[in-house]
Design a binder for these strands. Sequence first.
RNA 1: GGCGCGGUACCCAAGUGGUAAGGGAGAGGUCUGCAAAACCUUUAUGCGUGAGUUCGAUUCUCACCCGCGCCUCCA
Length: 492
Amino acid sequence: MTLQLFNTLSTQVEALTPADGKAVTLYACGPTVYDYGHIGNFRTFVHVDLLRRFLEQQGVPVKHVMNITDVDDKIIRNAAAQGVSIADYTPRYEKAFLDDLRALGCLSPVIMPHATENIPEMVALIQKLEQRGLAYRTEDGSWYFRINGDPEYGKLSKKDLSGNTAGARVDVDEYEKDSASDFAMWKAAKPGEHAWDTALGHGRPGWHIECSAMAMKFLGETLDLHAGGEDLMFPHHENEIAQSESATGKPFARHWMHVRFLLVEGRKMSKSDGNFFTLRDLLLRGYKASAIRFLLLSVPYRHQLNFTFDGLAESHSAVDRLRTFRQRIEHGPWPAGENAELAAQSREAANAFTAALANDLNTAEARAAIFDLVRHANTAADHGKLQQANVQPILHALTLFDQVFNVIEDHDTEIAREALAWAEHEGKLTKESANLQASLELSDADIDKLIAERTQAKKSRNFARADAIRNDLAAKGILLEDSKDGVRWKRK
RNA sequence: GGCGCGGUACCCAAGUGGUAAGGGAGAGGUCUGCAAAACCUUUAUGCGUGAGUUCGAUUCUCACCCGCGCCUCCA
């Protein structure tokens, strides 16, 4: 099924197709690695991951490129403050970011170019623009893009900057610009700053030129899809379009996708408001990576998501329901034969799931389709009407779901352990992480042993002992479920 | 000020010109040694407010109220 996706450029929902008929070329703006990623960042990355997974599930390969911005003003500032070079400063944050992506179940982009490794391409692009009269050098040695030379400027963000005159909001350092809206493609180095010696002079690339150069280097002059957070639409993506299209004369990206911001407790996240959370903050408080991913995905990408701790608890319960359900279906035992009605419901669920995602990635509707099936199958099972031939279609629907949402398969314990190990190493253990630590103290083998002991106690009708074991485990966040076919357990 | 988005049950949330998906939470019940899980019943004659169009509007139009985001640090 072809994905219909809203295109910011046309403001229409349009089919997303590969221009070459084979693979979709996707460029997603990546992180500036100057600090740990926050959950707002990850809402965007998780939705891009879902898009990619869905396309691949539909048989469309995705050539997914994500840049790593490893030189910019903040990096230079922070590195200088610590007295280290930028090359010594950025790797820890890059690693942290990639670990976080993995923790959230995101596929790794196919190519992850670094800004500092593609300087020649950026220089060449600026030179090309200079030849076309769209780049100019100011007295301090910086290079700017001439907006007035691009009649289409503003077409993505629907802004008309033609009325802008020099003087409004001009940085004191940038008084030499022809127009207030002209933006830097190359920044002359100030004394002591990390810089490259190039034909443009001694300096470093601007943020926008980096993405233009790397996107075109790795994916060609016209991309199928360019994605990022809504804030990047202007000026970042607008500037990327201006630079790229002015240089090539071709459309830079056929399709643009922008993920709306996440709010926290109804407000934009900000450090000063005290509602700023990194992924690590949440993991150390004991929230599961799967619950976080599911919450981030539960509200479709074009709507604001209000991130709350109540919502996180809710997502945890919802993921738990799916996991419990899959276990139940897999374990059986089920009588021979097939319940035709349930088989039909399974097919409907799979179809509805795919149709919902194909409709501009309606994740809320897609998850509803799967929960419908959960209820139908549980009901059938309780009435002895779930039969062996029903198992495969149900699992098929769950597999479709999890290939995209990626939350049923459980990696939460190992991710929590990694987060704890990191916090310990960095000296960032807190009171809340102590609770998490306690709950991870018992190994799976320890738990199985205690469960065996409890089963013995139950057999000899020593319920006091059995309940004591169950209560002790519960205190450590281990929940037991007795069933006809044995004991299941899970970490809370 | 300019541009844009949203207001659906206790909470989150989908949706359609024809009479309200799904999840979570609560209450009662079934099952269980007791729990848990699961199931059953239950929680919006109602979709911000007021008009209008229509045989019919939550869904279209207009006005108003409220909330949020973007407007060159920002996912």
